[in-house]
Design a protein around this nucleic acid. Structure first.
Lengths: 197, 197
DNA sequence: AAAAATATATACCATACAGTATATAGTTTT
DNA sequence: AAAACTATATACTGTATGGTATATATTTTT
């Protein structure tokens, strides 16, 4: 069983994560967080060293949720191509999935922290690299098993795919229009089907 | 000739624009701006109603610079296809162009202002729509003159192209790696060549 | 259940914030 | 060049900021 302290820490992180993700590091004040959690500053500073540590934990929480979902999706499909289609299908509803996080954590933190918080910025970069690696692995296996042939290296192809997906995420986020997700995924599906089969 | 006051206002905007673009609306303080301009609060508040008006002018300044450049590029090419290639070539060095603005104003403001400033957020959306319209017009002319055939409407195709470009911008911004721009443009060039010729 | 340990609440720093009133400097107009 | 006007600097609001010291609850161990 988890101790009370551990549960409080966990509660703080999950409550605070969407607030940070929505309003950014500088845009979130400690009073925003006491209000959201119903706790006082004493509680927050008892569980986290400072605002930055809190923000970092919050991002890691969101990031892990996303990474786990991607793992789940990529293990769902049988063949490599299946896995990719399950992934793109996931991104078609990416806005729904990231809604209770307060949007895409990678985009939000990656852009927001750019010139404001090196630690958060580095964490976002790391997550991007991890996702690209996961996708690349699927392609690599597909190539090794002879299932598919790529015009470039698996990592290169994964990066290209992820760039397009993340482009759709960015456009959907900025405009509030999920059609960018739908149309981009539709395009990618025919691209993969045509290019790799 | 412009009056002294007009020149001061212009000076403030162009000096303040990259600061806002880098650090965001909440991340930029009035003292950041007095420091950057070498002027005092009195001068800033004499020329602008408040921080929000300043931020909006700053974004419009960056946005216009970008829109003018895109207009220039789209008028450079002779045929519709030429125009598109000139545009994609521009995006290959988009990071260089947006460097002294402090990065892509659309991405930065579009993401940053999302939950922090409705006015700025709306302005970013507007700029996106404008750019998509400009690209769509090129495709439309190409179709009407019989130069090229599209699988979807001109606007739809323009949106898809811009989403991919902006995806590359987002990834390059977040990772600090311009290869995303180079590779995406390379991909788009062969795509356009193959799909539309 | 008492004692020891830990977690949270309260009250408080010093500083930074956006914004304003007013005095002073600088430009235009006459 | 004087007068009228305008723009900028200074000094000052009240409030919010991140963070801390300490008192008070609440758990956990004995």
């Amino acid at each position: 069983m988890s101790t009370k302290a551990e549960r409080t820490t966990a509660y703080i992180i999950e409550t605070v994560a969407p607030v940070f993700n929505k309003h950014g590091y500088v845009g979130t004040s400690m009073s925003d967080l006491t209000e959201a959690t119903g706790l006082t500053k004493g509680a927050l500073y008892g569980n986290f060293e400072n605002k930055e540590a809190l923000a970092l934990s919050a991002f890691q929480y969101n990031s892990n949720k996303l990474l786990e979902k991607i793992d789940e999706k990529l293990s769902d499909g049988r063949t490599s191509l299946d896995k990719i289609f399950v992934l793109t299908a996931f991104y078609r509803n990416y806005d729904v999935f990231t809604m209770d996080m307060g949007g895409c954590p990678i985009l939000n933190v990656g852009v927001d922290a750019q010139h404001n918080n090196p630690l958060l910025s580095a964490a976002a970069k790391e997550t991007i690299k991890t996702i690209e690696g996961k996708i690349a692995l699927v392609f690599e296996n597909g190539v090794n098993s002879g299932e598919l042939r790529l015009p470039v290296t698996p990592l290169q192809f994964a990066k290209q795919l992820y760039t397009m997906l993340q482009g759709a995420v960015a456009m959907a986020t900025m405009t509030g229009d999920r059609k960018y997700l739908i149309n981009t995924v539709a395009y990618l599906e025919q691209l993969v089907r045509r290019e790799l089969k």
